[in-house]
Design a protein around this nucleic acid. Structure first.
Lengths: 206, 206, 206, 206
DNA sequence: TATGAATGAGCTTTCATTCAT
DNA sequence: AATGAATGAAAGCTCATTCAT
């Protein structure tokens, strides 16, 4: 009986993920408003009513999608900066992991930026508050690495740690967007130092 | 007689701008798809038919909005980097001007990023080709400043000029988005050097 | 003063006819519903308000058009069958006149059949009652010719005179429609007897 | 299970026919442009969306209507002229069948001629090409009967067979229209010979 | 429990008509 | 008297959502 219900639950979860996978592809390809619930149902080979058993409305499906993906990314990035090593190693791993995550989940990234669909404009706004908090928490964690490096005399205190965290994250995103937009022309550097050097090395001659 | 027709034209222009102002606010608040032409008409206190006298359809109204605003921004930014002075002065003026433009046109900026409305993900995609070309042209102009600085031995050649241009531009945008989203918490630095230093000064101790 | 007002009235009539001429062309080209009052106004180089000075609405303009044209056709056909001569000469003149009228007024004929636009289906229905009465009156006049011919022993009484009138009129229309539809292939016979013979000569061998 | 799906399909077909019946009545009463999809939906007691499940747009519904009816008429008329017998018997049966079809399907006939909805004038133009071909094919078949009669020496060769076919067909239509418009006053002759005599017997005394 | 037929609010757009100038 | 800017009812159509089976 417990086994039975477990099997059922597993089956349900599998169906839920099947729907989300189809929705992810469609939303990232065409944008939120250009995908209909019927289209998702048809491609996932479920009845439209079944979709509404799993997600109470279109918005919920969309949010669940974002949440699930953000979860995976967050875990991977947290893991990268929490692993042992000095500040430079941690940043290096962060740059590398962010690149891998982006490149292995192009559809999801597109989803993030495909359509903010609401009162929002900024890369964060329009996302679920849960996701925004998650990103904020991560940036502070990243800032702590800079702070620790500065305290250790390893980094110059050229800006506030949080500013530096935002700057590094943004620098990575910039390279990744260039790559996403035109993979032939722009390559996300395999060596993380290429990006870190923009922060680490002096641009202006002394 | 000429006076008469001038008054009419002025009146027409005023109405057109009134519609655009209302549309700008609504689109930037709620996104393209969540604003109806009736809503715009009602808020602008015109009959729905009158909107269609000025803009042949919703898409045209939206594009006209983007184009007009992009025009103003482009002019301001070009002026900033074309004014006399060495490379550092030009970049400084650019950072400052971009900040002013953003902060004085928050609604417009929201519009730019409110909704890409398509299968796109990148911040440029989904925009009118005219605007994309304009942005691209500007980035190349910005890249030339870096290139000139490198040739003059004033900058270290730590990355390709175009990459540096994109990086600086995105760095500014990122801080401005943080400010836009939460003006109390995040302040766009009044001193441009705060941003430029991230690129200009060594982060890692030698 | 009387001269003055006469000149004005003439001018007004000229304008009215100018509008009707433009409307006739547009309606016959595109059909009633596919022509807008604005289109007519623009092509006639009048303000839209001016059209409404002459015709209280679109329907009225259309009806006026039909009425005026029907007037001209009716006059021509009546004249044809009222002119002196025996029954055969009258019918001959009728066939010839109907041909000339059709061929010289293709646009108008198209107008008649372009769109019945109402609860109607038949070639008469949907037309103004005035026009229907006019046509009915004409057919009776035509029937009288057949009756007179039969009474004079000049025609076989193979059917009621009214039936014969309808048949002859329809025979002419048939030839003319064939011609209208494909002027190269089907020619309306220059010699009226070609049509009359279908009625006048035996088809079945005795 | 199969029974189940059959019942569903029958139900669907019934609904489709219900919509078409309502549409037929409305279109034939008021003409294509003067009937709205909402009106059809309301009268058929369906939601507007349901109409669009059956017919992808208004035009399709209209065409489906014409096609279905034309199909039935075509079959009946072909059957009439293909049944055994000499040319006169075939023509007689044709005249009779056409009369029956018209009189039993007044609404449909009205539909055919209710509105050509275009720049067309001719009774055929504006119809679907499929229907026009069907009519054309039928007229040629009818022409062959005349030709065969002429070759057999049974008919005088007073005109080209195709012309005679068109003439007979239009003659029937004309009388049927008179009847349709005013059933009390004009009677479509019960005896087909009344019409055929106009073609078959000499009108003018020798 | 899963289905998908049915719903109808709400969208964009057109155009006959009005009326202040 | 002539104008044409302004109006808004109403059209065709879509699609998120519901609920009887």
């Amino acid at each position: 009986m417990s086994k039975e219900s477990t099997r059922r639950e597993r089956e349900k979860l599998r169906q839920r993920q099947e729907i989300m996978a189809v929705a992810l592809n469609l939303f990232s390809e065409k944008g939120y408003h250009s995908v209909s619930m019927h289209e998702i149902a048809a491609k996932a080979e479920f009845a439209i009513g079944t979709l509404y058993k799993f997600f109470s409305n279109k918005e919920e499906l969309y949010k669940a999608l974002l949440l699930e993906q953000s979860d995976r990314f967050d875990a991977a990035l947290f893991k990268a900066i929490e692993s042992p090593g000095d500040e430079i190693m941690k940043l290096r791993r962060y740059v590398q992991t962010k690149g891998e995550v982006f490149q292995n989940n192009a559809a999801t990234i597109r989803l993030y930026f495909a359509e903010t669909r609401g009162a929002s404009f900024n890369l964060l706004a329009g996302l679920d508050q849960v996701i925004r908090n998650r990103i904020e928490r991560f940036l502070h964690q990243l800032a702590e690495i800079f702070e620790s490096g500065i305290r250790a005399g390893r980094f110059h205190p050229i800006a506030e740690p949080y500013i530096l965290a935002v700057a590094l994250d943004n620098l990575c995103s910039t390279f990744l967007f260039l790559w996403l937009e035109n993979p032939e022309k722009h390559v996300y550097p395999e060596n993380p130092d290429t990006i870190l050097n923009i922060l680490f090395k002096a641009l202006v001659n002394p």
